[in-house]
Design a protein around this nucleic acid. Sequence first.
DNA 1: TCCTATTAGTTACTTAGGTAACTATTCTAT
DNA 2: ATAGAATAGTTACCTAAGTAACTAATAGGA
Lengths: 142, 142
Amino acid sequence: MATHELFHTIYQLSRELTKQTNQTLQSFGLYSAQWAVLFVLKEKGSMPQSDLCEYLAVEAPPMTRTIQRLMKQDYVQQKPGADKRVKMIELTEKAKKAYPEWEQAVLSMNERLLAGVPDEQRMVMKTMLASWLVTLKGVSHE
Amino acid sequence: MATHELFHTIYQLSRELTKQTNQTLQSFGLYSAQWAVLFVLKEKGSMPQSDLCEYLAVEAPPMTRTIQRLMKQDYVQQKPGADKRVKMIELTEKAKKAYPEWEQAVLSMNERLLAGVPDEQRMVMKTMLASWLVTLKGVSHE
DNA sequence: TCCTATTAGTTACTTAGGTAACTATTCTAT
DNA sequence: ATAGAATAGTTACCTAAGTAACTAATAGGA
C-alpha cells in the first residue's frame, strides 16, 4: 500500500484538529496544549508534573512551559511534594469554576468536527489507531 | 463516544511518526518538513511555491523557510516564472542523485512502523481518515 | 487608462514539541 | 556511610506551523 498517504493524512488531520481546537479556545485565552493539561488535571486530580508528561506523552521542557503559563493565568498551582524534587500540580478554584464552560465548548466542537462520521466509524478508527500507537511505542521502546 | 480519545490518539500518532521520520532522515541531514517538499517535487516536478503550499496544506511562511534551507543545502533551486511574482521550485541534480537513497530509507521505515498492521487495516484507516479530512476541510471552508 | 482588489512571497512574532546540558534531590550498592 | 546512578525539573537552542503585516506584481472594472 502507499504508506505515504496514510502518514500524510494523519499529519494533516492532527494539524487541522489542533487548529480548530485553538480557534475554539481562543475566546477563553487558552491554547490546545494548555487545554490538554487542564483536562487531565480535571480527570485525575492533583499529580506530579512528571506524571502529566507521561500521561500526555510530552517531554519535560514543553510541560514546564505550559504549566508556567497556566500558573501565570492562575488556572493551576504547584505544591511541593514529599519528595523535594517533585512539584504537585493542581487546578485552582478559578479554573474549576471556568472548566464546565471550556469543556462544553470543546465537546460541541468535537461533535461538529465529527458530524459526518457515523459512530461505528469513529469507534473503528479509534480502536485501530490506538492499537497501532501502542505497538508503535512498543517497537521503538525495545 | 469519547471523542477526546480519538483526537488525542491522532495527535500522539502524528508526533510519533514525525519523530521517527526525523530520526530516519537524520543521517542525511534532512528533516521531515524538508522531505515532504522533496517528495512532492520528485512526484510532480517543477512547480510554483504556492502550489507546494497548497499540496502540503501549509501556509506560505513555513514553506518559505523550508525552501530557503533546501536551497542552502543545494537540494532545490528556484527560477523566476513568467509571472514575476512566482518562484518556480525544482530539484537540483544533487537532490535527484541522492533521492533514491532517501526514499529507500523512508519506505523501509514506513514498513517497519506498520509491521504489526495488516494491509486491510491500513487501507481501512487510510480511507476513513482521508474522507474525514475532506469533510473537515469542507466544513470549515464554507 | 488608471485605481482597486487580488495574489505570491517574505518578515516578525507566536505556540508547540524535541534534544542536550545542567542543578538539585533521592536511591542504590558497596 | 558514602560514592555513583537515577530522577524531577529547568534552561538554552533547535525544527515546525500559525497569524498579522508588509512588499511587489498582476488582474479586473469603472
